[in-house]
């Protein structure tokens, strides 16, 4: 399959079941909602060492938020429910509770309920106030700028993490330009996040390492500087490879985002140095979700 001169490999991305939740962060204005949400979703690129994968899903109009203020929705993913609950609570406490004018609400009603403000309320030292509004419990925690309003729980659902595709280009700037185009298109798709910086990861990994303590190491088959040194997947003209990793609330959401991203990258085409699109997998043995590039782009 070739799109605009870009070769689409006959391969697939392999993804795993995860647990996810969505939260809504609001503030006096969008700038401060972003500050809080960025802090909350910071250091959350990969479950390998961050504990969770998180990102901002989209901006919300005041009409879309529970308290009628500007806000953003963020998605958090982890390998298990316990880990997700722990990460959510820690991040909410350290990043949103602390951020001026912020409030925090559940973004998912369905699924198992996990604590949001349920334990953070104790920061109020007995001065916290509970309010049940529309069947949902909220906590008003007195803080120095007024009150931190936080919903008691949010829903946790089954989700999918690790959808991905690789963009292989003739140069590093060209690979990055294609990734930027892809990310811009993918950010319009709901229910997904691309958790790496700017949505792009340049250090794709393989499972295992020659060093026994490391669970993952550099994906040498796609490292352009190792073309003559390892069993490479790269042809001579490829000088740079970048990856986009996608976590989504369902496999259909990931497929939709992959299609939008690959199409945008291919839009730049071979004329702009984009030569191939590939994907990372483990031979289909580890993850139950397989995203075949050619099927997605058909």
């Amino acid at each position: 399959m070739i799109i605009n001169g870009v070769h689409i490999d006959e391969t697939f991305a392999e993804a795993f079941p995860m647990r996810a939740t969505r939260v809504i962060v609001t503030a006096q204005n969008l700038k401060w909602a972003h500050y809080a949400a960025h802090a909350m979703t910071g250091f959350a690129t990969s479950v390998i060492a961050c504990g969770c994968e998180a990102g901002i899903e989209r901006e919300l109009d005041p009409a879309e938020t529970p308290d009628g203020r500007p806000g953003v929705s963020a998605l958090l993913f982890a390998m298990g429910g316990k880990g997700l609950a722990k990460q959510l609570e820690t991040r909410a406490g350290q990043c949103v509770l602390t951020s001026p004018t912020s409030a925090l609400f559940a973004g998912l009603d369905e699924g198992e309920q996990i604590p949001l403000g349920k334990n953070l309320r104790y920061f109020g030292d007995g001065f916290q106030i509970s309010k049940r509004i529309g069947g949902k419990r909220y906590w008003r925690v007195p803080v120095m700028d007024g009150e931190f309003l936080c919903q008691e729980t949010t829903g946790m659902v089954k989700a999918v993490g690790g959808g991905n595709f690789l963009i292989l280009a003739e140069s590093q700037p060209q690979a990055l330009a294609a990734c930027e185009a892809a990310i811009e298109a993918m950010r319009r798709i709901p229910n997904v996040i691309m958790p790496f910086p700017g949505g792009v990861v340049r250090s794709g990994s393989k499972v295992g390492s020659k060093y026994k303590t490391l669970p993952a190491s550099t994906n040498d088959a796609f490292c352009p500087t190792l073309k003559g040194q390892t069993r490479t997947e790269l042809s001579p003209e490829i000088e740079s490879v970048m990856e986009i990793v996608i976590d989504g609330l369902s496999d259909a959401d990931i497929a939709k985002a992959m299609r939008a991203g690959v199409a945008a990258a291919c839009g730049l085409g071979a004329a702009n140095g984009i030569r191939r699109v590939s994907a990372g997998n483990y031979g289909g043995k580890l993850g139950p979700f397989l995203f075949h590039l050619r099927e997605i782009m058909a």
């Binding site: 308290d67 009628g68 409030a103 309010k131 529309g134 909220y138 007024g146 009150e147 309003l149």
Partner: peptide, 13 residues
């Protein structure tokens, strides 16, 4: 005097 964030939510309810 205060502007309390929960009030709009309460009245919206």
């Amino acid at each position: 005097m205060h502007t309390l964030g929960f009030l709009p939510l309460l009245l919206k309810g």
